[in-house]
Amino acid sequence: MLKEKRNLMLYKQDFEKFFRLLSETFTIFGPSKTDGSRSFTKIDASDEIAFDYENTKMSLKEFFFPQTETLFFFDTEKNEVKQTDVETNKHDKQNILFGVRPCDAMSISFLDKVFNANNPQDLYYTRRRKSTRIVSFACTNPASTCFCTSVGCGPDSETGADIIFFELNGRYFIKTVTPEGEKTIKSAEKLLNPATKNDIEEKVHLMKTANSNLKKIFDSGNLQKKLDNFNAPYWGKLHRKCLGCGICTYLCPTCHCFDITDEVIKSNGRRIRTWDSCMFSLFTLHASGHNPRPTQKERMRQRIMHKFNYAPKYYGKTFCVGCGRCVIYCPVNMDIRDVMKEIMEER
């Protein structure tokens, strides 16, 4: 059993071999060049992997918590549940998610608190999670929209990952984070060498540079306290340019709200869960017509509060990893960093 995390080295020229060895036991997913790093797709050859991407457009969450998931099928004529998706989608082969950015890896550790915790456990998520190893890639060149260090994450964060790669000059610095991570590289052990002091120094230096490129914009701890003021005046203004679309929540790696609906064609039906968004006006609309969050003001507040105030209280974590997707893709440039700044500056 693993006593401590190991630091190992892999020469870039051996990566192809490394990839092949791993793919004998695992199905490998990663950001691929072919779809412009839109999402994590199946990778068949090592050269399909896009190493230099900033972040995938779709976050990692859809791998474990797909946008549409069948909970079970049923027959309305016979009035019976036929089978559940958990039973049909057997994940026999183990998966590797390769090249995950540390922020996305961390986001999975948050989702684990929601779905994987035994309160009760969400079998659909758990099943996928159990069969999947996360191999993350430290960010040596973070984007201008990244703000991970403001929310307790960082370019070399290990949380959520089983293994983390650092790209050094001509070689990869590989750190095993979990026992699963150890097991994952077992088959490729012969390609790996223990890291030397030099290697470690180079890695530390590299990450120092990366870290220095990331400005810490706010302190999430203070923010949480600030947000305890539920009726703060800024809520009356912040939302005004918000269009109420679902881009920020759908692209967010930690947003996990979903809807459950039934779909029926003839007598064949399925109960599905689909992503939902607190930004949508119908999200909390009661059958009676009452809506506790009737305007974009309340909905915007809910989104911010859920991430930065409620989640810390409930799960002990700020549900934001600073990936910057909401910043990049918001059609009205509603920059969450700006919002945070505004909140922090209030009084």
């Binding site: 269009l243 109420g244 679309c245 679902g246 119908l282």
Partner: peptide, 28 residues
């Protein structure tokens, strides 16, 4: 994500057909 709809000045319906549940015109 309905951003196309929400960014469009023409799309001011109080309840978009895409989200109506009575009846539900399309699945979610």
């Amino acid at each position: 994500c309905y951003a196309c709809r929400d960014a469009c000045p023409n799309c001011y319906c109080k309840e978009c057909f895409a989200e109506q549940t009575k009846p539900q015109w399309l699945g979610v």
